[in-house]
């Protein structure tokens, strides 16, 4: 196997494992569009890094933190609703980053690469970073999972339980931002949010508790990442889009399966009623 393929394999496993729980928390909190905002912010970070000449990871992290604080400030402003604030940041960062790319004299990364990703560029140090993030986020998720769920259900209930609601909200935003910053190289800014949301939505079909849903979402993300990687390698097509297409296929397959089960149940119920007569 090629070296880059093994790198890609490890990177996609590391990202898929985390996509499950993070994506679930995002849909629980009704901020499914948050991914778009932060991923466009990441493109801005990337372009800024190229323009100024600092390491892209440093620029990405810095811009992510700035974007999270902007989002927080806009959220406090009562005349801007959350979705409007997210759209505002998404569009403005896209426009600014396109301009930045225009001014970069020598392009190591092209705008298209930033938007749709390029798995060939994933190196050993990226994999190390992804697994370091996995470890730290897994610890954080372990400790704060239940609190985040309660905040998602009703923030005031969490307040009454003496949970530090604003602090945890900001921590969550930063985590999603960093997750996206670390994975746009592979998936591309336009596609990372899909990889967070679609497995979570698919997992909802067959889960009874939030934990089940997070686990199932991770499994779905992992399966689509691996199968997407295999297919894209086999047919020589772009990897990121193939992975996202696989998550969509999983969603369609699972919802059809659920529908079938429901039809079967209805039939059984009808039979039972007829027999009673």
């Amino acid at each position: 196997m090629n070296d880059f393929l093994i790198n890609a394999l490890w990177a996609s496993i590391g990202i898929a494992l985390l996509a499950g729980p993070l994506g679930c928390l995002m849909v629980f909190k009704r901020v499914a569009c948050l991914g778009d905002t932060l991923s466009h912010g990441s493109v801005l970070g990337l372009s800024l890094g190229l323009l100024v000449g600092v390491h892209p990871m440093i620029a990405l992290t810095a811009v992510t933190c700035v974007w999270v604080s902007f989002l927080w400030i806009l959220n406090k402003n009562e005349t801007v609703s959350t979705d409007a604030a997210m759209a505002l940041l998404t569009q403005s960062s896209l426009a600014v980053s396109i301009l930045f790319f225009y001014f970069v004299p020598f392009q190591e990364t092209s705008l298209i690469e930033a938007l749709v990703g390029n798995i060939l560029t994933v190196g050993k140090e990226d994999i190390f970073l992804i697994y370091a993030m996995d470890f730290v986020f897994a610890v954080l998720l372990f400790f704060f999972w239940k609190k985040w769920i309660l905040i998602a259900i009703h923030p005031d209930l969490a307040f009454a339980k003496h949970i530090q609601v604003p602090l945890l909200q900001i921590l969550f935003l930063i985590m999603v931002g960093l997750f996206i910053a670390f994975s746009i190289q592979m998936m591309g800014a336009l596609l990372v949010p899909a990889f967070l949301i679609i497995p979570a939505v698919a997992a909802r079909l067959f889960s009874k508790t939030p934990e089940q849903m997070a686990f199932l979402a991770s499994v779905i993300a992992l399966c689509s990442a691996l199968s997407g990687l295999g297919i894209s390698y086999q047919f020589d097509i772009p990897t990121g889009p193939t992975m996202v297409c696989m998550t969509v296929l999983f969603y369609i397959f699972l919802s059809l399966f659920k529908q079938l089960l429901r039809i079967k149940q209805v039939c059984l119920f009808k039979n039972w009623k007829e027999r009673k007569k």
């Binding site: 629980f28 998602a152 508790t209 089940q212």
Partner: peptide, 11 residues
């Protein structure tokens, strides 16, 4: 409650 949160009363 947001219907996407799978949550039983017991939980």
């Amino acid at each position: 409650i947001n219907p996407i949160v799978p949550m039983t009363v017991r939980r």
